[in-house]
Design a protein around this nucleic acid. Structure first.
Length: 136
DNA sequence: GCCAACGTTGGC
DNA sequence: GCCAACGTTGGC
């Protein structure tokens, strides 16, 4: 089981809406590196849900319910998406500032590649993030 | 609102 | 294949 982090602006699709919907197709990714990460995802992988721009914090944990398939919002066949389902919210959101200051998280792609919207998280990093967010 | 980072496009 | 111009993302 691998760990990932996806970014979303809360004004586009907030965690609360995700929870309300119960599941969602993670469509619309139009960046090759992010797409390649999507394609590496497997069912039951865990996904940290990060609110970008407004919020700037991890707000919950989701899981992959369906591995990569063709993004239905893409006519060209170039892009992929996965299906996600919320698991549980953070007891406390993990802020970007906390992440920056936490030992062991300095290699997180979130800090190194600010524009990447789908990125891997190592098991070690995931353990730290779960602890910080009150996620078991 | 600004701007750094960085991906994409298109002329050459 | 190079690179300037341009657009987007996202933190500040």
């Amino acid at each position: 089981m691998k760990y990932w982090l996806v970014k979303q602006e809360p004004k586009c699709y907030p965690w609360a809406q995700f929870v309300h919907d119960g599941h969602t197709a993670w469509t619309g990714v139009r960046n090759f590196q992010a797409r390649n990460n999507l394609r590496t995802m497997r069912r039951n992988d865990r996904v940290f849900y990060y609110h970008s721009v407004t919020g700037k914090c991890i707000v919950g944990l989701a899981r992959v319910t369906r591995g990569a398939y063709g993004d239905p919002t893409d006519e060209t066949g170039t892009w992929s998406c996965v299906d996600l389902e919320p698991m549980r919210p953070c007891r406390e959101p993990v802020t970007l500032e906390q992440i920056k200051n936490a030992p062991g998280l300095d290699h997180l792609a979130l800090l190194r590649q600010s524009r990447l919207s789908v990125m891997p998280v190592s098991t070690e990093e995931a353990i730290i993030l779960c602890k910080m967010g009150g996620l078991e």
